[in-house]
């Protein structure tokens, strides 16, 4: 069944056609980002003639995307490190404690996936405000770590449950501490699901617009989406700039996906059995 047969060719053609159809909005995004306002008005989705990269250079400089890129990267990376550290440890505990209390805690964490974020938005803002964290990177890092923990724990717990506990048990019996057993034996086995956790959380954190606006608006630490949205006015929106900024902002995250693609799929694959 591994041979490339006529039927495989037919499938290949069909899938490529689906891919092309799927890319239509992406095509729209790219051509819009290569046009000036006049061209966007006269033929929004036609081929740009001539294409202009002015939007890219202008978005980069006007929105100071360079410094925004640093802010976004810093916030995303630190949040991810915390999420992976705290989330995997927590999930390890939840997955290995087959008690009623452990299960109850797991459900408590899952509750976080269903809560609408608007419910706690104002009280949390007030809390951060009292702690004088508004306008700092910490506020966002703490926010993302907390808000994405339920999903992270959900992914890790499913995965860890499917792992045999024997190795870690053997290490413990050999006299290793729980912490050693975790860092040396369990965590390396979590690599695939960590890839999944990484990419899915990164996508959310990288693209989030409202929270950075709320917590960092007006500070020197604005993230990429905040800077890009400054071009969207009620009256006059410069969509050429917006879409060029969007393409620039999406490239890093797409690269991360391409690099992690193998892990993402494997991570899900092994986690599903939980």
């Amino acid at each position: 069944m591994n041979r490339y047969r006529p039927r495989t060719l037919a499938l290949e053609l069909l899938m490529v056609a689906a891919g092309v159809a799927f890319l239509f909005p992406v095509y729209a995004l790219i051509v819009l980002s290569l046009k000036d306002a006049g061209q966007i008005a006269s033929s929004p989705l036609g081929l740009p003639k001539p294409p202009t990269v002015d939007n890219y250079t202008e978005a980069w400089s006007t929105a100071s995307l360079g410094s925004a890129l640093l802010s976004s990267t810093l916030i995303t990376v630190v949040s991810l490190v915390l999420l992976i550290a705290i989330g995997s440890c927590g999930a390890y505990f939840l997955a290995r404690r087959a008690t009623r209390l452990g299960y109850g805690l797991y459900i408590l964490f899952l509750l976080g996936i269903v809560l609408p974020f608007q419910l706690g938005m104002i009280p949390l803002y007030n809390l951060f405000s009292k702690l004088e964290l508004i306008g700092t990177y910490q506020s966002l890092i703490l926010f993302y770590t907390g808000i994405q923990l339920p999903f992270t724990i959900f992914l890790y717990t499913g995965f860890i449950r499917a792992l045999p506990a024997d190795y870690a048990t053997a290490a413990l019996v050999d006299g290793a501490s729980h912490f050693q057993a975790y860092t040396r034996i369990v965590f390396p086995l979590l690599r695939p699901i960590t890839g999944t956790v990484l990419i899915l959380n990164a996508v959310f954190i990288w693209n989030d617009f409202f929270t950075p606006l709320l917590y960092l608006g007006g500070s020197a630490h604005e993230t990429i989406p905040v800077r890009i949205f400054a071009f969207v006015g009620q009256y006059v929106s410069d969509y050429g700039l917006v879409f060029a900024g969007l393409v620039l902002g999406a490239i890093p995250i797409l690269l991360v996906f391409l690099l992690l693609q193998r892990y993402v799929i494997k991570g899900f694959a092994s986690g599903l059995k939980g």
């Binding site: 915390l82 705290i86 408590l108 964490f109 976080g112 809560l115 419910l119 706690g120 938005m121 104002i122 009280p123 949390l124 809390l127 703490l142 926010f143 770590t145 907390g146 808000i147 923990l149 339920p150």
Partner: peptide, 11 residues
């Protein structure tokens, strides 16, 4: 972290 960022504010 979850308590401080999600549970307490939501409650």
């Amino acid at each position: 972290c979850y308590g401080a960022i999600v549970l307490y504010p939501s409650a």
